[in-house]
């Protein structure tokens, strides 16, 4: 059995390559059927904010790419309730169906995976 990997994505889509790199790890791992989870933490939850316009700054559409995760076999998607709340984001308005977890649940989540990387 392959080791499970939790990817913690904690940068906004606009702050540099981190958000895309985290997604690329998830897509590549998913294409190879690795047991993967993806957690949006801190500014990472901003990747899920609705109606962003990447074309305005000549960037690729990360939000569209994120929608492909379930097709790549990455269905364990989580977001930090605290990070959402701090940024005034409504869980219902997010562009991706994620499980919203409080801090205690996040501790249990990290514990459950064999490997964790934070980008």
């Amino acid at each position: 059995m392959a080791k499970s990997l939790l990817i913690i994505s904690r940068q906004s889509p606009w702050s540099g390559p981190s958000a895309r790199e985290a997604l690329d790890i998830a897509l590549a791992g998913g294409a190879f059927d690795l047991p993967l989870g993806l957690l949006f933490l801190d500014d990472g939850v901003l990747q899920l904010a609705p109606a962003q316009q990447p074309a305005a700054v000549q960037q690729k559409d990360l939000a569209a790419n994120l929608q492909a995760l379930p097709l790549f076999g990455v269905e364990s998607l989580y977001a930090s309730a605290r990070s959402l709340q701090e940024r005034g984001l409504e869980p219902r308005a997010l562009t991706l169906a994620v499980e919203v977890l409080d801090d205690a649940a996040l501790i249990a989540l990290i514990d459950r995976y064999d490997q964790v990387i934070t980008l």
Partner: peptide, 11 residues
């Protein structure tokens, strides 16, 4: 058009 990327074989 939907996802702005080319799929690998599995997807």
């Amino acid at each position: 058009a939907e996802f702005q990327l080319s799929p690998a074989n599995r997807p």
